[in-house]
């Protein structure tokens, strides 16, 4: 995965336990930071844009919470939305079951991705071979 990230570094946007949310900022600031920094979008516009994304993912209520106060599902979705904020994003999800360990299958992941599918171009999921079962027929 590291090799993949380094060869596609200009547009890759990882969702991984190794790339955590900033703990001294709330969720909305964590996500809007990407738009504010890369596109110089104003705080107001970026926050509005992010809030719409959070509403689509059904986690608008966590907008002003910080990382330690989130459940695994909320954290995953917040990290996914943050990755989708990268322009023409190539989202890379690194071992999603490490982020939400209690999931029985990948249904939640694909549902989350389908809710914001207009915000990214591609998504790659990197997973251990022995987790293949959890992905069912969706596995390549």
């Amino acid at each position: 995965m590291q090799r993949f990230l380094s060869t596609n570094s200009t547009v890759t946007a990882p969702v991984s336990v190794d790339v955590p949310l900033l703990s001294n900022q709330d969720v909305i600031m964590n996500i809007s930071l990407i738009k504010e920094y890369h596109e110089n979008m104003s705080k107001k516009d970026a926050s509005l844009f992010v809030m719409q994304g959070l509403q689509r993912l059904g986690i608008a209520h966590v907008a002003y919470k910080r990382n330690p106060a989130l459940t695994s599902e909320e954290r995953f979705r917040a990290m996914l939305l943050r990755a989708a904020m990268v322009k023409d994003a190539l989202i890379v999800i690194d071992r999603p079951f490490k982020i939400i360990s209690h999931l029985e299958n990948a249904g939640f992941l694909f549902q989350s991705l389908s809710e914001i599918d207009d915000l990214f171009i591609h998504c790659h999921i990197f997973e251990y071979r022995w987790m293949k079962e959890k992905y069912g027929d969706l596995c390549l």
Partner: peptide, 25 residues
Amino acid sequence: VEMAVMKSNRELKTLETFRIDLMNY
């Protein structure tokens, strides 16, 4: 403390991964 904790928690790596310049931000 903030800088040290961010470094320990790999949050600085997060910023670098999203191509946010630490010096600027």
